[in-house]
Design a protein around this nucleic acid. Structure first.
Lengths: 299, 299
DNA sequence: TAACATGATTTCATTTTTGGAATTAATATC
DNA sequence: GATATTAATTCCAAAAATGAAATCATGTTA
């Protein structure tokens, strides 16, 4: 019935069934029938009409006065929201991991905002596993294997993981020459790497190493700080240590061995349907990450 | 689409497709399909749902925020107008002839307002033939034959027409004894009676008399005043002269002869569909007029 | 982990609505 | 008054929507 009321408002404003039908892309037969049905539903005649004449009844006038403003608002609101869905502007809610967002990807967010000034970015960073659906986010950046089949995803890149220690630690304990020598060292373990699946890049051999933890932490940034402070050896994503490696604050250990690659995904909860803003961000992230060698597993 | 948006608002408020369907008397199949169709039309998912879970998407939240108030207003407005159509309250626009409304029927309007204090009467009186349709009136009172087949009507009564003159006039000219003697008299003609179709009630014979006008007027009240002032004989509705006859200010002429009866009708432009207010007035007028002997042609 | 409960979705026959063509009705014009 | 014009209405076959029953999917519970 609301559809028919909206049609009635259009008819009144154009003072013609045919004209309203034309502007709404409806055939005359449909217009006349729906108006007639509305009159039957409301149990009052709304319009006196003939081939040459058009006149509202008293009731028709009441209904027009009451509904015309509301219908206009609804249609304008629909247009506005539809426009927003299909253009890169307005609010965009994003979920992303803390460490990488304030680290290597911080310029990416900055560049996105610069390129799309009409988008109002609401960036929620967290190292916890927030529920994408309940958070009502448009899109999220995730690192590591994604198991939620309800979510759509696109892979953006890889992060290598390597073993590192500080120069001071290695001065005191000498760098190990084999995995078995790690047992003689102080190991810092993070939650995401409780078991080390290590690959020898020279021999192309893989081994699972179960570290005896000297220290267990649930934050990678904190772990890299502890490693810098000389507390031991850790398996860390290269994104968290590449600067320190370049500055000599950290050194690689067992350089032939690497940990598992950590995949980077864009994921979203809305199936194939992705609004233009989120799509723009997804593509922007994809471009940025694919043109950053370290985020493609290269170093 | 507006119907589906309204359904979406109901679903969100009840956080359940099934509950919304139940309250709106729609089967689950219809609810799920219409929501799905809305999502396809809008090209965005609005709700994540399963048997046990309900969550809005970011877009769903935007659409709810934007539309919930508007949908409530539209539904409330529809209820309000529907209630008005079906109850005897609110505005009622009426068209009626001037002379009879300020004369014999004045107490009827007064009584109607007293009986229905919730009705806001807009009484437009006129002796012209106003266009019922263009005037956007709910109902009209009309006197005389009605030719407009587009209008619905109900006959309420009759008004007799008689020949009258003042005592002063009859002192000077002596009362005529036959129609042919009228030629020797001064005749006052009104527009509605340019040709006198007269019936002899004793002989049950009808004759057409073409008066030679001494004075022509387009208002019956003014005509009765001129008759009282002694300017001649006129054929007038009894409703305009019954008081003066009782007071002796006027006297009948050729008492065996009467003019044509003038029928009283209630007419309205909206076919079978008549709102409750107009229906109340129609029935009220019918009762009032049918219990007034002079308005049933009796005197 | 399997069974169960519950709500959402799909299937299929039926009903309703739609679009194009034909018809009707009401003015306008001559 | 007769005819032409124009827009509204009706008819009929096709398309879309609906409702009831069956099926599916997802949490919850034992």
């Amino acid at each position: 019935m609301l559809n028919d009321i909206a049609l009635f408002i259009h008819i009144v404003e154009q003072r013609s069934l045919a004209a309203a039908g034309k502007s709404l892309n409806l055939p005359p037969a449909t217009v006349t029938r729906r108006l007639k049905k509305l009159e039957e539903t409301l149990q009052c005649q709304l319009i006196h009409r003939s081939a040459r004449n058009f006149a509202l009844t008293a009731e028709g006038s009441s209904y027009y006065d009451a509904f015309s403003g509301l219908v206009k608002q609804i249609e304008e609101t629909a247009r506005h929201l539809n426009s927003e869905m299909h253009q890169v502007s307005g609010p965009l809610k994003v979920l992303a991991p803390t460490n990488i967002s304030i680290g290597i990807l911080q310029p990416m967010w900055s560049d996105f905002i610069k390129q799309y000034p009409e988008v109002h970015l609401n960036l929620q960073i967290s190292n916890g596993l927030e529920d994408i659906v309940l958070s009502q986010v448009d899109i999220a950046l995730r690192i590591g294997p994604q198991n939620d089949s309800a979510l759509y995803q696109k892979k953006l890149g890889n992060i290598a993981t390597i073993l590192v220690a500080s120069p001071g630690y290695l001065d005191r304990y000498a760098s190990p020459d084999s995995l078995s020598e790690l047992a003689n060292h102080q190991i810092i373990v993070t939650d995401i790497f409780s078991k080390w699946v290590l690959t020898n890049t020279q021999l192309n051999r893989q081994e699972d190493y179960y570290p005896n933890a000297h220290l267990i932490l649930n934050d990678i940034y904190l772990a890299s700080q502890m490693v810098q402070d000389g507390h031991g050896i850790a398996l860390l994503p290269i994104t968290e240590v590449y600067k320190e490696l370049n500055e000599g604050k950290l050194q690689r250990v067992l350089t032939d061995w690497q940990g598992p690659e950590r995949e980077i995904f864009a994921i979203w909860p809305t199936g194939k349907l992705l609004n233009a803003k989120a799509k723009a961000l997804r593509d922007f992230m994809s471009d940025y990450i694919s043109t950053t060698p370290i985020l493609q597993g290269k170093f």
